[in-house]
Design a protein around this nucleic acid. Structure first.
Length: 386
RNA sequence: UGGUUUCUAUGUCCC
């Protein structure tokens, strides 16, 4: 069975996580008892491939199978809950059940819990966990500080984020490239590009070389502030110093040009992606869909959707949401509803954004009868209107 | 430590 865990891990690393899952299933059918290592590896494999729902399913199955989760299993699934954007009470429930079954949280647990607080700007909760771990005698490490710093940054608490940087320095943990990138991102998010550039200078003075994260953050920050020339200057600088743009960098450029309706520049970047031995990812496809959708270019939307599927992408909820909205904005009401039905058929659960997009489409069409039905269905499915 | 876990960048519905 240890062999199984290693096999699952290897398949997961290659992105063949479905194969890993069926391997486990078939061995189980043959009567092999699946151990906690194998289950945990599979959960982890799903998580690394972004398939959080499947990861949670495996966690449920392992418990039904009578297999007791270990500390590591809990740590992995906590991370999954955070990345999947599970509601906070679910995360707390999991943390409680972990402790109730006698599993003692470790450094990783706390780091993961703090990282979970980034969603929803739960900086007070993060601070509580930070205290709790210290009371439990666990020394925060660089990941702890960086996670906490990032929570503050994402909660628009720049001052507190900077305080964390000071505190880590006082405790003998030097801010790393992650710390700087996180702070730069926090500044950029608040439109403080001058501050962001100062931090970049500071990191260089400390001997830290800006990386593709740094540059992409700054590029997108300038783009969002409407300072396209500065954004392009950043892009030039990164290439001049030999920092290779990756798919995230290209996506930021595609978004920048697209939002200015500079379709030719946008498609040039899209071509550049292929030239650079990069593969378009789900963000690339969703960005293109959104841009064409918002500009009423329905044949382009369909073309992109086809290309995306040809490239082997299985549309997820985000994509469906964007398509529903895109077709509706293009005046293609029927197409928009077809997408909604296709989404339901493929087993993807609508979320509040889906319902908002569908309701908006129905509103544009003036179909208030149907929209009342959808609104009722939304409440039936326990989906809270916002 | 038999193998599995934690931190930073790009896209996001409605208004």
């Amino acid at each position: 069975s240890s062999v199984l865990a290693v096999g699952i891990k290897l398949l997961g690393k290659k992105g063949k996580v479905s194969a890993a899952a069926s391997l486990l299933k078939s061995l189980q059918k043959e009567g092999l008892e699946i151990d906690v290592y194998a289950y945990t590896s599979l959960i982890s494999a799903f998580a690394n491939n972004g398939r959080y729902r499947d990861a949670v399913e495996v966690f449920k199955e392992m418990k039904e199978d009578g297999c007791r989760p270990t500390l590591i299993t809990y740590n992995v699934i906590l991370d999954v809950y955070g990345k999947a954007g599970m509601p906070w009470n679910k995360i707390v429930e999991l943390y409680d059940s972990m402790q109730n079954s006698g599993v003692v949280p470790d450094l990783y647990t706390y780091n993961t819990l703090i990282a979970c607080c980034r969603r929803g700007s739960l900086y007070e909760k993060a601070a509580d966990f930070f205290q709790e771990m210290k009371s439990a005698g666990i020394e925060p490490d660089k990941v702890t500080y960086n996670a906490l710093l990032d929570v503050y940054g994402k909660s628009r608490r720049l001052k507190e984020a900077i305080e964390v940087k000071k505190e880590m320095e006082l405790n003998g943990v030097s801010p790393s490239i992650v710390s700087y990138n996180s702070l730069i991102s926090a500044c950029a998010r608040n439109g403080l590009l001058d501050e962001a550039m100062k931090l970049k200078t500071q990191m260089v003075e400390k001997g830290i070389v800006p990386d593709v994260f740094t540059y992409t953050t700054l590029l997108s920050g300038y783009a969002k502030s409407g300072k396209d020339e500065f954004a392009m200057r950043i892009y030039d600088e990164m290439r001049n110093i030999g920092c290779r743009p990756n798919i995230c960098t290209f996506n930021a450029l595609i978004q920048m040009h697209g939002s200015r309706s500079k379709f030719e520049d946008m498609m040039k970047v899209f071509e550049e992606v292929k030239k650079s031995r990069c593969e378009p990812d789900i963000v690339t496809w969703n960005t293109l869909l959104a841009v064409f959708g918002q500009n009423g270019m329905d044949s382009e939307v369909s073309g992109v959707f086809k290309q995306m599927k040809r490239a082997g992408f299985v549309p997820e909820r985000d994509t469906f949401n964007k398509l529903i909205s895109a077709y509706s904005r293009c005046g293609c009401f029927n197409m928009s509803m077809d997408v909604y039905n296709a989404m339901l058929k493929s087993g993807v659960t609508p979320d509040v954004s889906t319902y908002n997009a569908v309701l908006a489409a129905l509103a544009r069409e003036g179909d208030w009868e149907q929209s009342e039905k959808v609104f009722a269905e939304m409440k039936n499915r326990q989906c809270k209107p916002n």
